[in-house]
Design a protein around this nucleic acid. Sequence first.
DNA 1: TTGTAAGCGTTATCAA
DNA 2: TTGATAACGCTTACAA
Lengths: 341, 341
Amino acid sequence: MSRKPRLRSGTGVTMHDVGQAAGVSAITVSRALHSPERVTPALREKILQVVEQLGYVPNRSARQLASARSHTVLVLIPSLSNTVFIDALAGIESVLQPAGYQMLIGNTHYSDSEELALLRAYLQHSPDGLLVTGLQQAEAFSRILQERQLPAVYMMDLSDDGRPCVGLSQEAAGAAMTRHLLERGRRRIAYLAAQLDERVLKRLQGYRQALSAAGCHDPALEWLNPAPSSMQLGADLLDQLLAAHPDCDAVFCCNDDLAIGAIARCQQRGIAVPTQLAIAGFNDLQAAAWTTPALSTIATPRFAIGAAAARLLLQQLQGQQDASASHCLDLGFQLQQRGST
Amino acid sequence: MSRKPRLRSGTGVTMHDVGQAAGVSAITVSRALHSPERVTPALREKILQVVEQLGYVPNRSARQLASARSHTVLVLIPSLSNTVFIDALAGIESVLQPAGYQMLIGNTHYSDSEELALLRAYLQHSPDGLLVTGLQQAEAFSRILQERQLPAVYMMDLSDDGRPCVGLSQEAAGAAMTRHLLERGRRRIAYLAAQLDERVLKRLQGYRQALSAAGCHDPALEWLNPAPSSMQLGADLLDQLLAAHPDCDAVFCCNDDLAIGAIARCQQRGIAVPTQLAIAGFNDLQAAAWTTPALSTIATPRFAIGAAAARLLLQQLQGQQDASASHCLDLGFQLQQRGST
DNA sequence: TTGTAAGCGTTATCAA
DNA sequence: TTGATAACGCTTACAA
């Protein structure tokens, strides 16, 4: 009675094959690979040899199906073209990969609804956990996480509701840069912003606080544009701003891209930076140190944030979290003063 | 006889459950979802309703295991911090996601051995195909692909051995920029390079050809450094180069990062660009248009390359490839002349 | 410490 | 057009 042969993935070497060749059963091979301590050293040695010989590659689908654990983490970031998130990704990778976890990357394109759609789509992979950028998601988002009991760690900002997070206070950072400009003697300080995601708006809050405290907040100097950030946009917005407010003596750009465009435009227009106009950015991208003059900015520990968030998530996955401790990790920021202020 | 209950992933709603609720069998649900034409429209409608109602989410592991197809593509890129590859990634994503394919991203860190290790590791996911950066891999690499009959498309360069690829002639691009500098009247043209991956070396070949043809090739002006590219390195290498060869009248940097650092250093040192020294880059990153003066460079269609490579791979996966046609897609490049030359 | 039996959720095969 | 049955390769539960 010939059984019907089905397509086989990979080389077709299974645990069963390895077991036969080593004179043991499949389950022993499984143990030798995943819980070495439960198998006699000599036996384990032999099994590993056979694995090598036959070129056995474990089948992850089968493993997932049987164990109901995917060893997979879904990472949601707003953009691939923003170095900030790529750096965080690199940090995540540095932790997840050695731990045997796979990361699935979802690009939300700064959209709540795309984010939700991605979550739904990636649910098919039954990720063990999530790393999410920011604290604000679509309403259904957290409901789904709760229904499925999916652990998540939030990155880049600090939560005030007990959700585990790793990041920095965007508000404090915005305030810090604004105070720096005040200390440099500026009073007509504009906030130039694009994209207007939650982090950009929190920096705006910090900017407002600092200026209000100093008694020089002027809402007319908040120059906001929802378009995606770019150097070109930075240059354009600077032109607009100066046309409307020629008395402006400093521009705090919500990120380095805008700031680099703004500085270049000043060069083109012969506006002296920082004498006539101080310019500040945010994030400390590599290029910030190489403009003329070099750009003052806020350095953010993106790689460390990604790595710490991944570590925190792994702890949760491995059940090591104290339900008591609120896990909100503030990794801070650093003001990089350079020539532009 | 109570069966032992096991951990269930996700919500625990299975095809079987959906089938029961809709009064059909599981297999019919499967067909309703994946081959609609094989199910009565009315029935299909009903099934979809139940799917919605119960919040059914297909289990990808089970699907993979049963069908021996993972709908997953492994993408190998040398670096996450280089925009060039991120752009390609975005192009890939734009094709793969709508087609229902998942991309697994492997970061090789510019290392053949890491690349091989990644391939081995990701084999566990039994990817249906590969998108690989560059043409040069470790020896075992292609052997594994052959053993497993894994289709692969190579990106960023043009193969001369029939392997399917999408990219541009790095050599021709290197030659084109060099000829441009010659046309601008330069004769002492240096090649400033870092990282020294295969693409950088091919551009070097193009540079050599063009200069030899013009009778002004001087090997002493090839300034190569294996360290990772950075703006800092570009500035440093420029200093070294000029110290050794003060008569140099143009510098062709192997990428924009180096070039941006070099231009900034010229500004700092008061070297007139391009009058005294012309500077050219490669890739046309966003920042290239915003240096002072703006950087002349070679624009490369990264997004399009990623997208086309993904499309080509999908064709192979769906068995639409003509074995006859050699699939080597040259998407070309464009010389962007700006102020620096 | 090792093995046996059963089941994870889906799809391929074959039959109705 | 639909369904019954048997895999897919692995791991859990339990027994030896």
